[in-house]
């Protein structure tokens, strides 16, 4: 492998790791950052998005539209969960953890009963790009671009909409926001919806690259958590930086030491980063 090829290979790998981590973490980061609760059913929102996308796609929708429908389906599902459960547990981190764990158990088993062990997947679009003797999936690289677009949109929504203003206020000081007449409960509800939509879109986007199974959510949960925690409190900057740095570390480690090495590197880096930067990467930026 020539140096140029290695470098290229590394860049592509790092980009695809970044794309995936950023996508699966964003929805969780929004909900965790603003509402301060842990959504243990996060993976199942991704699952709902992915399955709906696949269904739409097989029903003849173009992929992009199917992904949009997937996001919407996850959003509606999120709204139901919020109204039924989460709204009674605002500001109760541990309790939401256990309750959403319950949601996750239910969803996984229902999906299994309804659709069986695996679900017909989507063929990865866009073909491959060649570099020397090597080639990589174009779609995997496009995912990194999609992640950047989603982060930018989320940033715009937080900065330039009324909801964004309210949610930032609620995040910084809930009591003060309430005093100023901001309906924090409505803000929380919208946030949960918004986070769910983002997770659903992420599910739709990664659907063409993985097998669709009832456990697909559980499989990404740890990576999503790790990314959010390493990122720290700042939803946009922290999470994207975390995804980037973890991706950059995972890529060479998996090239050198195999998949297990890459995964271990991700976990060890997480532990070390938390130890060195107890505030997450946000702490460094601020």
């Amino acid at each position: 492998m020539s140096l140029i090829e290695s470098l290229f290979g590394f860049l592509i790998l790092a980009l695809s790791h970044f794309g995936k981590l950023a996508l699966i973490a964003l929805g969780l980061a929004v909900i965790f950052g603003i509402m301060g609760i842990i959504n243990f059913a996060h993976g199942e929102f991704i699952l709902v998005g992915a399955y709906t996308t696949a269904m739409g796609y097989h029903a003849g929708f173009p992929l992009l539209l199917a992904i949009f429908v997937g996001g919407l389906a996850a959003g509606i599902f999120g709204l139901i969960v919020e109204r039924l459960i989460i709204q009674h547990l605002y500001d109760r981190l541990i309790e939401t953890l256990v309750a959403t764990w319950g949601v996750s158990l239910i969803v996984i088993q229902l999906v299994r009963i309804q659709f069986g062990g695996t679900f017909a997947g989507i063929h990865t679009p866009l073909g491959s790009i060649q570099y020397g003797a090597f080639s990589a999936s174009t779609y995997r690289i496009a995912l990194a671009g999609a992640a950047i677009v989603l982060f930018a949109s989320t940033y715009a929504i937080f900065m330039y909409t009324r909801y964004g203003l309210h949610s930032r206020a609620a995040m910084q000081n809930k009591e003060m926001a309430q005093c100023l007449g901001i309906p924090t409960k409505r803000v929380y509800m919208k946030t949960f919806f918004f986070g769910s939509v983002l997770s659903g879109i992420a599910g739709g986007l990664i659907a063409p690259t993985v097998s669709l199974t009832p456990d697909m959510g559980t499989n990404v949960l740890v990576e999503a958590f790790v990314t959010v925690i390493v990122g720290g409190a700042n939803v946009i900057v922290g999470t994207s930086l975390a995804a980037l740095s973890l991706g950059i570390i995972q890529a060479p480690a998996s090239m050198l030491f195999g998949t297990l090495g890459g995964y271990l590197a991700l976990l060890i880096t997480t532990v070390l980063l938390i130890r060195v930067l107890p505030e997450g990467l946000t702490g460094v930026v601020e």
């Binding site: 009674h88 309750a99 319950g102 949601v103 996750s104 158990l105 088993q109």
Partner: peptide, 20 residues
């Protein structure tokens, strides 16, 4: 039955909602 996880999930949620 295969429904055990669903029962457990519902149980967790109910306990948390009614006995936070």
């Amino acid at each position: 039955t295969g429904y055990s996880f669903i029962f457990l999930g519902i149980l967790f949620i109910l306990v948390i909602l009614f006995f936070p």
